[in-house]
Nucleic acid binder design. Structure first.
Lengths: 339, 339
DNA sequence: GGTAGTTGTTGAAATGTTTCAGTCGGCGTA
DNA sequence: TACGCCGACTGAAACATTTCAACAACTACC
């Protein structure tokens, strides 16, 4: 049962009575070896249970067959959908995808990046903790293509993101159209670009409609999780009735779900007492007890586009950096239905 | 801006005025090189921006620094929690974790496994599409430690799972205690070991309580997704009132969430009209609009234990295969509260 | 001042591939 | 028959490390 060491090309060559080079050719340019020989070699491979050693291949060929995605928050399904899009593109290009998770910690992110550079991966896709981190620049300078996902850096990087300001606009516009004149924005921390821009869009459209700024209430949260959403909901409920918003726009769906849960749990009705709009349109948004209106990001498409950019950068010498911006779309569901 | 090729050990050695071997020693056994030399070498490394080439290291040393987890369904948060547990253990052991997703397709799973073998990873953790697949046996026979997660194979494999029969028992026992005498079991396909065993546990405890088998209604689904749950909910609602169950036990939380959504959406109250128990206790279960009673699996712990087994198998010559079984726990929440 | 031991460093072999300049034999053409 | 050509195959170098036997320089001891 215990096996000796794995058979190498040399063993295959010996078994098939050919030279090393021929075995390699069978694997890498089968068209230039005679059919009979090729079959003999393939036979030998199967008999010996030969599996190519990728380290050796990569060392010699100098090119890796894997892409990596460093995601920001493994507990947010949004990032898994992005990853899924990347995976599909990687599959098409016959590459493996290495998925890492920084969990929002810069230190962990750096460890991952460091390892990826050691592995000399073909390209790195990343939703960084801080898009402007110097370390990211170093990786890129080292010659590894880096694409920033769901965030934007400067023009030295490719990036793929969504127009968050516009997303904020359509969310709040929808609420205004539905007759709301007091609206909360729940999300944070403000250091997050997403949060800032979605809030900005909300404020812009609010002003455009001539509504008084103080009626767009900012409800800051520590992070963008369900628990933070619940907590924001409690603060919202604590406001005096005449100042209490009748609708909330949340910086992402997790916060919106938390808010929804808190509202229903404390006996308020959604959307009658409180209308809610989320952001991302994760699968659980539609599946919530009151299906959630949300600003849809083309999650898989984001991933796919990012993968294509990184591949272009890796293989096309004439590559020029590109900041792709997608336009989000409002998906109206029960949580904002007019009653 | 364009960089020449990456500096190698040789370049570092030249820059520091030492030999190749010394540079290697600085990296791998720093204690046996004089402090002054070591500092000189480290200095040179930093100056040149040297990053060790992992392929070459692995080729020569013959040992990989990465673990891999092939997960079954990227859209189920349960598996991400397991992955998180593995990641923590990997971090402790200073290893990288490669996450792959088979999405329930055996073909994709095989592609992933094949690549992992090519990479000669240290160990593979997998929640397989089919735990008895022959391919898995081949991988293991090749000398790569394989641990089956959340499923059980024969005694030639380590595995980590939860006692599903017991889980089924406590779920239904809870419902019986709450006074329900007509209960549905929603889940499928029956080919899934999980589904079969959870149902079995449910039936056992049902019989133990002297209840008539026909009052435990099997509501089969195509898969374990939210959509399937909704669909099962519709079928449930379609039953004549006198035969309609007053409670449902779902094979996992996604199905339970779907059922919950359908029930509330069509005006029934939970738990008054329909009590619901899920399985897995994913984070969204507690965050549902009606917090879900669920059978908790120690998700992270599962992953952590699996990682430890795979590491033991990889490093301990005296390793003996082990089938770890965890005991699940019922977490009662509002969806089954007695009114 | 020779011997033994210790500490730090070296140099070369080895790892499993790919790549490329050659070799070899056979075939068609002049 | 000589020539060039072509297709199929070979052999060795190269890739960036690690490892290990050997060596050099000291120190300590008698």
């Amino acid at each position: 049962m215990v096996v000796g060491k794995a058979p190498s090309v040399k063993d295959v060559a010996a078994a098939a009575g050919v030279s090393l080079g021929t075995v390699s050719n069978v694997m890498n340019r089968p068209e230039m070896v005679a059919t009979a020989t090729r079959e003999r070699v393939e036979r030998a491979m199967a008999d010996l249970g030969f599996v190519r050693n990728e380290s050796a291949r990569q060392l010699r060929a100098g090119t890796s067959r894997t892409l990596a995605y460093v995601m920001l928050d493994g507990s947010n399904p949004f990032f898994h959908d992005v990853a899924q899009g990347i995976e599909l593109a990687a599959e098409d290009a016959d590459l493996s995808l290495f998925i890492c998770n920084s969990n929002g910690r810069a230190a962990r992110e750096e460890v991952h990046l460091d390892r990826l550079v050691q592995q000399r991966v073909q390209g790195i896709l990343i939703t960084p903790v801080d898009p402007d981190s110097a370390f990211l620049g170093e990786v890129s300078r080292r010659g590894i293509p880096v694409v920033v996902v769901d965030r934007v850096r400067d023009s030295n990087f490719c990036s793929v993101a969504v127009d968050d300001v516009y997303g904020g606009r359509i969310a709040v516009e929808h609420l205004i159209e539905n007759g709301h004149t007091r609206v909360a924005f729940a999300g944070g921390p403000e250091a997050l670009g997403q949060v800032r821009e979605r809030l900005q869009g909300a404020r812009e459209v609010w002003a455009d409609n001539g509504l008084p700024p103080e009626d767009l209430v900012f409800l800051p949260t520590d992070a963008l999780t369900v628990a933070d959403g619940r907590e924001a909901g409690e603060r919202l409920a604590g406001l005096p009735v005449r100042r209490r918003p009748t609708a909330a726009f949340c910086a992402n769906d997790l916060v919106a779900l938390g808010l929804l849960q808190q509202a229903i749990g404390s006996g308020r009705r959604v959307p009658e007492d409180l209308a809610i709009v989320g952001f991302d349109d994760i699968e659980f948004a539609a599946a919530a007890a009151v299906p959630l209106t949300s600003v849809r990001q083309p999650r898989q498409e984001l991933g796919r586009a990012a993968a294509q950019l990184v591949l272009d950068e890796a293989t096309n010498p004439a590559h020029v950096h590109e900041q792709a911006i997608f336009t989000p779309e409002l998906i109206a569901r029960a949580s904002t239905a007019v009653h």
